[in-house]
Amino acid sequence: MTLAESWDQYAVGSKPRRATNTKGETSWLNWTQYPDHGPDESVLGPVAGRAVLELGSGSGNNLAHLVMLGAAGVGVDVAPAREGRAREQWGHLSGLEFRTAEATAFLRVTSRSFDVVLSIFGAVWFVDPLTLLPLIRSRMTTGGILAFSHLPPGSQAPRPGKAGMRHDHTPEEWSRMLENHGFGNVSATVLPPPEGQSAGTMLVTSVAV
């Protein structure tokens, strides 16, 4: 089974997001694996008028929320089923595009620059950072924000494939790699889980320098 087929199979079997969150909102951004938990889009700073790229955009919910706040968004996902679902739900929004592509392949061919790049349990967790980080930096404007989240090292994988497919790193390791590939002002922390849960969430932010 190819990588795209594996993710497509996962996408087809995944449950759709709730229609509203506990605040009654119909769109929102969630960095963690738990509903209504953790920080919101403020992690990215103001997004209105900014070009945003999401690597591993899934069904497009997080990116659509940013577009509704005034961003121009491009979502890239390796699973064709994800693009279909995202277009079905969010295709009516202007300034929002979805592409089916592997992250490094997209970054190598696109000529566009982005002010914000994010990955929520997405490509940054599954692609070799020594390959991916330079490609991301090459498509970012200076001063742009890169932010991503995934499970901390040693946590059970909630995504297709073996644990060896993931690129688990400590906050210190992420900080060092980002600083070596054109990023500064790195913040890498593990968010504590809600009560009754055991696994936290790694959240990393940095600035393209």
Rank of each mutant, 00 (worst) to 15 (best):
M1P: 00
W7S: 01
Q9F: 01
Y10T: 00
Y10R: 02
K15W: 02
A19P: 14
T20S: 13
T22A: 13
K23F: 09
E25P: 06
T26E: 15
S27Q: 11
N30V: 09
G38Q: 09
V43H: 11
V47H: 03
V52R: 01
L53A: 01
L53V: 05
L53I: 08
S57E: 03
G60H: 08
L63I: 11
H65Q: 12
L66P: 08
L66R: 14
G73H: 11
V78M: 08
G84V: 15
Q89C: 07
W90H: 15
W90V: 06
G91I: 09
L93I: 11
S94I: 00
G95L: 00
E97V: 03
R112V: 01
D115N: 12
S119A: 04
S119N: 04
G122M: 06
A123Y: 05
A123Q: 08
V127D: 01
V127I: 13
P129I: 00
I136Y: 01
R137H: 12
G144F: 13
L146D: 09
L146M: 11
A147Q: 09
A147C: 13
S149H: 09
P153K: 15
Q156T: 15
Q156Y: 13
Q156C: 14
G164Y: 10
G164E: 15
H169F: 14
E172Q: 12
S175M: 09
E179K: 12
F183W: 13
N185Y: 10
S187L: 07
L191N: 07
P194K: 03
E195D: 09
G196L: 01
G196Q: 03
A199F: 00
T201P: 02
T205P: 00
A208C: 07
A208F: 09
